[in-house]
Nucleic acid binder design. Structure first.
Lengths: 319, 319
DNA sequence: GTGAAAGCGCTAACAC
DNA sequence: GTGTTAGCGCTTTCAC
């Protein structure tokens, strides 16, 4: 592995001159710099990140820890984060599972964005003792060493529920995602707030886990047990809604004639269902951008933008 | 940022003792090690990756460069790679776009897996002068500094096409993904081989780009221009097939009565279409595992397993 | 304009 | 069993 020494030797100059030339220091005249660069290229030399990071005490990298690479939501979020970081000369690295733990402990990046509920809060706080900034997206941690950014789930779900009630639905059920998770809890709060405000009682509550499969299961159990069917399913996300829709339709139900249904997120698929799914649109790309902007501000100890990402009610054809 | 010195000071011992203790060197007695570890934990100290990587001349990381975080295929591939790396004490970092270039140049990992056609072959070879191993998944590079791993697209598509012909389809059309890309070219080769072997002439060829949207567009243009409809669409991947299916169905066509259709990959969605999509199943999780196994072998200069990933014909209901 | 040298935070060889 | 020290490959201060 060629190092700066090899380049220096090949150029007949010192390593500092090579370093200056490669970093475009104006002290080195154009000609010399050009010569050094072409020799470096010939050798295939690029400065070692590990060495530079150690010396400069930064990496110009941001780590994003996600819980898995599937799911329709991360995609745009990551693109948004990457877009903004790139624009500011930063690199994005993405990790999951145990890899995230290791990378965080090693401080493989200048900052981290966490959206992986599997990373324990306790561990995060331990890491935060010696590493900052960390932005957490999937929960609220009330500790000054960690920063929270969240979607305004409550307000969006409150408004969606109001729209549902206004349409005249009476037997309204709620479909939970993973119970204690921030997104589920706050969406449920918004739902409840609207229901209480309008003196409505909840017809039923079902428990899923944010996946389409769990929606399928919920629908299947309703059909098999011949349970009373609500006239409206308000789901904690799109994927569960789509699972319920398709399964109920396959069993002869017609939407929105037999019942209405809504989702949350506005994933791409929501625009391809029949009928088109009514939902809350979250612009994850834009959200990603603002997350990245905030982490860059935190790196410079600047004040962050603490506003929550807003959702937009999309009333289409499913209720 | 606490360093090993801070821990040594707090422990009243030298930095080497701290290093030994934290790395479970047997020379340090249990009690001492325990004491040092607990002090380190209290401080929130974790060894700096940059420093360790520099000293040890490795990172225990593998970089995976992908073209985007969307798409239904990467998901399982990444999980497979991660699973195997984890098992062997390696960490996986994932990157896209310009970030990948930077990370490769800096040698931020001990090896790299590339499945991003946007990274120019020329640049890859430049990087490979000083960095190995690199495994490339999305093209063939005939250069000893880079290793190729591919799916046996040709054989799988050959067999699928033979099955189609055997069913009696006569007006068989091929739907291309991105033209010059390895997956498309080799799948098309397999298709052609089977067609020629059976003295069949190709009814038509359409050009997409592997996305569902491009499938939708192809179908739309057929309908709008009232072009003759093939009795079979052999598509270069599932997503395009699904786009064509849905669009044609929305315009009154019935599958497989009016025509048959096939995909490639067996993405999750293929199991939810009506009718169920016939396709070639690629086990991307297993493939990811073998890719990871190979890169670990390459790290140790061991001989790799050069077999191509096989596809399995899944004849369901769409032809 | 160029070079010598210190030092980033570790690991590990060596000395005691 | 513990400490001293060299050195990984860079950047950057300081001298010339």
């Amino acid at each position: 592995m060629a190092s700066i020494k090899d380049v220096a030797k090949a150029c007949g100059c010192s390593i500092s001159t090579v370093s200056y030339a490669l970093n475009n220091d104006k002290r080195i005249p154009e000609v010399t710099a050009k010569r050094i660069k072409s020799i470096a290229e010939e050798i295939g030399y690029f400065p070692s990140g590990a060495a530079r990071n150690l010396k400069k005490r930064n990496t110009k990298r941001i780590l994003v820890a996600i819980s898995n690479f599937g799911g329709p939501v991360y995609h745009e979020l990551l693109e948004g984060i990457h877009y903004q970081l790139q624009k500011n000369g930063y690199t994005m690295i993405v990790s999951t599972g145990a890899s995230s733990d290791t990378l965080l402990k090693e401080r493989s990046a200048d900052g981290a964005i966490i959206t992986d509920i599997n990373i324990a809060t306790e561990m995060l706080l331990q890491i935060a003792k010696n590493f900052r900034p960390i932005i957490v997206l999937d929960r609220r941690i009330e500790d000054e060493s960690v920063y929270n950014m969240t979607i305004n789930n409550q307000k969006a779900m409150y408004e969606l529920t109001k729209a549902v009630i206004k349409k005249g639905y009476k037997k309204i059920a709620y479909v939970h995602g993973v119970r204690d998770v921030f997104d589920n809890v706050t969406r449920y709060d918004g739902f409840n707030q609207a229901m209480k405000e309008q003196d409505m009682t909840v017809f039923n509550e079902y428990s899923g886990n944010f996946t389409k499969e769990s929606g399928v299961e919920i629908a299947l159990s309703i059909i098999q047990e011949q349970s009373p069917v609500p006239d409206m399913f308000i789901c904690s996300n799109d994927e569960m809604a789509i699972g319920i829709m398709e399964t109920m339709q396959n069993h002869g139900y017609s939407i929105p004639n037999d019942f209405g249904i809504s989702g949350f997120d506005d994933i791409e698929l929501a625009q391809y269902t029949t009928p088109l799914l009514s939902t809350v649109k979250i612009n994850h790309f834009e959200w990603g951008k603002s997350i990245a902007k905030n982490i860059l501000k935190l790196l410079n100890f600047e004040k962050t933008d603490i506003s929550q990402q807003k959702g937009e009610i999309m009333i289409r054809d499913s209720f």
